[in-house]
């Protein structure tokens, strides 16, 4: 009987201290780590159309269309299918694709989740967090020395 009472006392303590663990989501934005992997942002200005991201993607989320001169024409990304493994960002030699902290996206149909390069470019930064800042340490392994200031817009 003591144990039962102890259980009840424990829950009562939680009820009376008035603290809550959940947040009111759209009003109170949840904290997102700088490393968080969300919707991609793509910069055509930087892309060299090496197609490494397309190659490394484990489930064919990225589709690149080139003309016969190997100039890039389309860059499509199915964010509804993406597993957010960040391998594309990891292999990109020029930081042309980047995963922002933005996790909020909706659509009425699956088709609308296929983002083309324009849509990908317009993906907003989440709370002005620049993800590259927090991810810098590992990039040397992939692209040698970084080249200083990077402007994604």
């Amino acid at each position: 009987m003591i144990g039962v009472l102890k259980s009840m006392a424990t829950t009562l303590k939680h009820a009376l201290d008035g603290s809550t663990f959940t947040v009111e989501y759209p009003d109170v934005a949840p904290e997102v780590s700088p490393r968080f992997r969300g919707v991609h942002k793509f910069s055509q200005e930087r892309c060299i159309w090496c197609r490494q991201c397309e190659n490394v993607c484990p489930n064919d989320t990225i589709q690149i269309v080139q003309d016969d001169q190997r100039n890039g024409e389309q860059y499509n990304l199915h964010i509804g299918q993406c597993v957010y493994c960040r391998l594309c960002e990891e292999v990109c030699p020029v930081d042309a694709i980047l995963l922002t902290e933005n996790f909020e996206f909706t659509a009425d149909t699956k088709d609308e989740f296929i983002y083309n390069k324009e849509q990908l470019k317009n993906v907003p930064w989440y709370k002005d967090i620049d993800p590259l800042e927090s991810r810098e340490p590992d990039r040397g392994a992939w692209i040698g020395e970084g080249e200083g200031e990077v402007d994604y817009q």
Partner: peptide
């Protein structure tokens, strides 16, 4: 999440080490 960048599907390990 602070360490790996995700809350569940971490993808933190790489062959020969970790990513971050």
């Amino acid at each position: 999440e602070d360490l790996t960048g995700q809350r569940m599907m971490f993808n933190y390990f790489r062959l020969g080490g970790v990513v971050w």
